[in-house]
Amino acid sequence: MLRNTKEDYGWVAIVLHWVLALLIIGLFAMGIWMRSLGYYDTWYNRAPDLHKSLGLLTFLLLVLRYLWRMGNEMPQPSLKLSNWEKTSSRIAHTWLYLLTLIVILSGYLISTADDKSVSFFGVFSLPAAFSAIEKQEDIAGEIHEIVAWVMMGLVLLHTLASLKHHFVDKDVTLVRMLGLRKKN
């Protein structure tokens, strides 16, 4: 099944979730690693270029995921959840989207602070949209770093919550995102 049902995620939603998870966590690790590179390291210029291309890819997939979500049913949350759990889960999921967008946007504003464009794997270049703030690269850089850490905190919370569903509540929340729910 490609599309979601009331009980299950379709394969498109599942693949988008895990590819984005890999990209978001991978880009965070890459950001830390590439800043530690020496000037003569082979990856000194290559890593930031790849980081930017993957960041743009993340943006495209995030938009795609949101559109897919809008055009699909959403599997119902576990019936065992209390109201505050449902509310906080909804808020957390919204912020996973928003923080990812903020990190991508601030990264874009660093690279384009002097009107330079950002290359997407050399296929096309995204031009600068906005480069009017004094020391834009510094301000955007602070936001990029701090929000990325907050985002990772939220990713940790999201992960712990999914494990709680699986091991404590013993419900299908995690397995259905893995596409492993047994159908009776």
Binding site: P48, I110, S111, A113, D114, K116, K135, Q136, E137, D138, G141
Partner: peptide, 16 residues
Amino acid sequence: PASIDSNHAERDKHLR
């Protein structure tokens, strides 16, 4: 020193 300008925002950020 924060006004360093090498005509490349990412490099200037690094220099600061």
